[in-house]
């Protein structure tokens, strides 16, 4: 094959595109290197020298636990809700209402997290107190509701619910996008068999959108894991690992803990905080990588068409 002459425009474009791509990797590597070097002293320090005096694992473990519990609550609450919203918008609502509703849900993503935090502590938490009391009294046998019920409502469950509202728009935006791309061919196949509207959704939309739901949930999980301000405001943190979701003594989350402790820390305590940040970095990276793999599988699932 003859050599194609390289045009200057192509070369310039290829150069800038490659440069931009490399820059992202450099920034990411820079963050990773910073975290590792700054966290290193905490890894090597004697356990007694670190905050809490139980070593790095003892320090970070409750934070990881708190982070995961809050994120999982958010995910469990938000995912079905988001799927419901996406289904309503794509397959049930009249077209004009669907567009309006879609932008309202997207607007939820534009609210700053500090506002969510204030809403959580000022409105949601107090209004949940009676429910927590009721749960303690009637569901107290379940470890999740063992109590004592918080009198302020600033519990792990409240924090998880605030997070749920925050990740709702991410999950519903992605599932909505996937649901609206279900080929008419599949939908009509179901309709022509005599499927009702719900059966059509069950036969075509849900199987087609499944990886979109999972991918959206994973991205929401990534957001929930890293959320700082809302948790720092809402959650009352004074305890260690506990399954109790409705008491005032909760483990903090990694991100909120860093935000609250950093200004008052020095020396090894800073290194310990950065080490916890490294753990969060790895955790979020892992979740995002997983989400990408799941969403990427969609191409195979769409089948023959």
């Amino acid at each position: 094959m003859a050599r194609v002459p390289r045009r200057p425009g192509d070369r310039v474009f290829a150069g800038t595109a490659t440069g931009a791509g490399i820059l992202i990797l450099v920034v990411l590597a820079g963050v990773a290197v910073f975290l590792v070097t700054e966290a290193w002293p905490a890894f090597t320090a004697p356990p007694a020298a670190l905050p809490g005096g139980t070593g790095l694992a003892g320090y970070v473990a409750p934070l990881i636990f708190g982070t995961l519990v809050a994120a999982v609550i958010a995910l469990v609450v938000a995912t079905p809700l988001a799927v419901g919203i996406a289904l309503f918008i794509t397959h049930y609502a009249p077209r004009r209402l669907a567009a309006a509703l879609g932008s309202v849900v997207d607007l939820l993503a534009a609210i700053p997290s500090v506002v969510y935090g204030f809403w959580g502590i000022a409105a949601l938490a107090p209004s949940l107190v009676p429910a927590y009391r009721w749960a303690e009294k009637h569901l107290g046998v379940i470890p999740l509701f063992a109590g004592p019920a918080s009198t302020t409502g600033r519990t792990m469950l409240t924090a998880g619910l605030v997070l749920a509202v925050m990740i709702l728009p991410i999950i519903s935006a992605i599932t909505r996008e996937v649901f609206s791309q279900v080929p008419a061919l599949h939908r009509e196949a179901a309709l022509a068999l005599g499927a009702t509207r719900w059966e059509t959704i069950r036969l075509t939309v849900l199987p087609y959108g499944r990886s979109g739901i999972i991918g959206g949930a994973m991205l929401g999980l990534g957001r929930a894991l890293g959320e700082t301000l809302a948790i720092a405001i809402v959650l009352s943190t004074s305890g260690g690992i506990t399954l109790d979701l409705i008491s005032s003594s909760n483990p903090s989350t990694i991100a909120a803990n860093i935000a609250l402790q950093f200004p008052e820390s020095s020396g090894l305590a800073v290194n310990a905080l950065i080490a916890s940040g490294l753990v969060l970095f790895v955790l979020t990276l892992g979740v995002n990588a997983l989400a990408r793999r799941v969403v990427g599988r969609r191409a195979d699932l769409s089948g023959a068409t």
Partner: peptide, 29 residues
């Protein structure tokens, strides 16, 4: 639509379903 079946221009089996489930899909509705 139950009384009047239809076959489309492009083959459109449900892609995530097995051969068996495709045939049984209408029967399970």
């Amino acid at each position: 639509r139950r009384r009047i079946g239809m076959v489309f221009q492009r083959p459109n089996p449900f892609p995530t379903m097995s051969v068996y489930d495709n045939v049984a899909a209408g029967l399970r509705l």
